[in-house]
Design a protein around this nucleic acid. Sequence first.
DNA 1: CAGTTTTTGAGTTGCGCACCTCAAAACACC
DNA 2: GGTGTTTTGAGGTGCGCAACTCAAAAACTG
Lengths: 352, 352
Amino acid sequence: MNNQVNDAPLTLRDVAAAAGVSLATADRVINGRPGVSAKTATKVQEAVQRLGFRPLAAAAELARARSWRFAVVLPGGGNRFMMDIADNIRAQADWFRARRIGVEIVETDVFDADTLAAELTTLPGRFDAVALVALDHPRIRAAIDDLVEAGMAVVTLVSDAPSSRRQHYVGIDNIAAGRTAGSLVGRFLGPARNGEPGGSVGIVTGSGSLRDHAERRFGFGQVLAEEYPHLTRLIPVEGRDDPERNRDLVRRMLADTPDLVAIYNTGEGSVGIGEALAEASLARRILCVGHELTPATRRMLLDGTFAALVAQDPGHEARSTARVLHALVTGQEIVAAQEHIRVQVILRDNLP
Amino acid sequence: MNNQVNDAPLTLRDVAAAAGVSLATADRVINGRPGVSAKTATKVQEAVQRLGFRPLAAAAELARARSWRFAVVLPGGGNRFMMDIADNIRAQADWFRARRIGVEIVETDVFDADTLAAELTTLPGRFDAVALVALDHPRIRAAIDDLVEAGMAVVTLVSDAPSSRRQHYVGIDNIAAGRTAGSLVGRFLGPARNGEPGGSVGIVTGSGSLRDHAERRFGFGQVLAEEYPHLTRLIPVEGRDDPERNRDLVRRMLADTPDLVAIYNTGEGSVGIGEALAEASLARRILCVGHELTPATRRMLLDGTFAALVAQDPGHEARSTARVLHALVTGQEIVAAQEHIRVQVILRDNLP
DNA sequence: CAGTTTTTGAGTTGCGCACCTCAAAACACC
DNA sequence: GGTGTTTTGAGGTGCGCAACTCAAAAACTG
C-alpha cells in the first residue's frame, strides 16, 4: 500500500523533457491543439501518464484569463425549496468571483413548457452554461438540445430530462426517494396484525407535470404494493404544492376515509396537511412523511406531526451545480462521488 | 432581490486606485505586512469592502509558489471504515497535486494514547498540517496543543477531542447519531400494545475508549429512556469492533435473553451479529440497526438482517478534510455548510 | 531646525500555464 | 530534383498576485 499520496511537483517543462519534445509541442498535445503527429502525441501522452502530470489548476486558470457567464433557471413563485437553492447559489458569490464566473438567476414559469422553452432560446450568446429545473416535455427536450448544439454546457437541476442531451443531472434519484418514503411508512406503521386491517394511505402530490413527483409516486407505490400489501393506497390527490389546496384536500380525505392511517406528500406545501390534521385533532395519530427540509417541515418534525422527511440538500445541489458547470466549461473532470446527491432521511434526531 | 450574483472582475490594482494608494501599499494591507499606518490601512480596507474585492484564488495560489505537506493519522488494522477514508484520501491525489500538496497517510495504534502521542510529536517540521482520529485523552489533548503551538493546522477526524486546540472537527455529531439509531429502533418496533411487554434491546459497542462510541450509546439510551420506556436496555457488551467477538457476544445474548427484540451496534463488526442471528434462525426476526456502510452491512441491509444503518460518508469526510486543511494553511475561509458532515439514515431503498 | 524613523510609491521578479507568432526542419508528392 | 505541406522548436506575452528592493516622501523626535 502506498501511503505517499503524491510526490514532487511536476511542470509541463518536465513532461516535455521526458518526452524529448519542446515545450510548445507538449503544450499542443495537452491542450488538444492541431499540428502534432500521432507518433509525437503518443510520446507526450505516455510521458504524462508515466510521470503522473496534471496541470497546476491555479496556473491554468490564471493563464486562461477568460470569464464565464452561468445562468440558473429556477421556477418563480414562493417555492421554499427553490428559494433555498437560489440562496445557496448566491451564497457562493465569492467562489464564483474567484473563478471569474458571473451568475444570473433567471426566474420563470418552469411548469409551462412554452414559457420555459422561450426563456431557454434567449440564453445562447448571453451565457456559456446553464442549469435548469427541467420539465420532461418534448419541447423542452428540443430546447435543451439546441442549447447543447449552440455549445453551451447544460445541466438539469432537481428535475431531470434524461432523454435530452444535457451533460449532467444534479439531483436525487426520485424513484429511490419514493421507495424510501414507502419503506418508512410501512415500517413505522408496523406489520399487519391478526384481525386488524392495515388501513388506508393517502397520497398528496404536486402538479404531476414535473418528472420528480411522478417518480416519487411510482417508487412509493412499488414498495407499498410489494412489501406492505395490507395497506390500501388511495388515489393521489393533486394540490400543486400549495398549502391551502393541500389543506382542503386532506380535510376531504379525512372525512371520506375513516381508516386513514398515513399520508405521504410527494412535494411541497406540507404545512397544509399539518393544519388539516390539527383541526381534526389527528396530528401525531396519522403518520405523515413528506419531502424537503423547510422551516415549516422542521417545525412539524419537531412537534411530531411528521414522522420523517425525505430530503435533498439544497446547499449541496447549489455547490454541485457550480462545480459541475465549471468543470464542464473548463474541461476538467467531474468527481462523480462528490456530485452524487444523496436521498436523505431526516428524523427529529438527525435534523441538521 | 438581486439575481445578478456577481459583477465585473476586480483586481488589486482597482482597489489601490479606489483607495488612492499605490499597489504596494494595498498589497501590504491585504497580506498583513507591516509598515502601513492605521489610517491608510483603513482606507484600503474600506475600498475592499466597498468594491467587494477578493483576491483571485488562482493567482494567489500561483504566486505563493509554495508547497504543503499534510499528514493523515488513521488507525492501523483492518477497520473497513477507516480503510474507506484512506482510499478516499488517495483518490484525491489529483486534487492535492493541483494544489502542490503532498499527503502522507500515517497508520498507527490510535487506541493507545502513548503510541499516538509519540507519533504526533514526530510531525512538526515534517508536515504543515495534520488530520487525526483523536483519542479524547489528556495526553493526546496536550500533544494536539503542542502541534498547534508549533504552528501546524490540526483537525480531528471521525472522533473528536473538543477540549483541545484543534481548529476543526471533520465528523458527525455522534450523540445525534445515537439518538437517530434509538428513534429507528423505537419506531420500527412499534408502540407498546396492551398486555404485550416491550422486550429487551441489546447494545453491542466497540472499545469505549474513543469518544464516538460513548456518545452514540449516550444518545441511544437517551431516546429509548425518554420515548420508549417500555423497552428494556441491556447492559452494553464490548466487542472491540471485532466480528468474531461480536458473534460470540450475540450468541450469549440470544441464549440469555428470551425476550430480545432488537440489537444496536454502535460500531464496526456488524457481520458477526448477522452470523449469530443466522445460526439461531433469528435473522429478520430481531431488529438490527448498525453503523457505517460497508460491503458487509450493505449485504445485510439488502437481505433484511439489518433494518437500517446510521452512517457518515467517508468520501465526504476525506474531501472535507482536504478542503479544511487547505483552507487553514492558505488562510482561506471555511464554508461551514459544505463541511458539515450529515448523520445519514440508510435503508435498503436509499442505498447509494 | 536637522536628524531620525516611519510610511509610501515605484518598480522588479517569478509562479506555471495558455496562447500566439515565426522560422526551421522534416516529410510528402510529382 | 523541386515544390508544397505538415510538423516541430524557439521564443514571447500576459494572466493577477506575492514578495521583495530601493528610494522618496512624510511624519515624528529632540
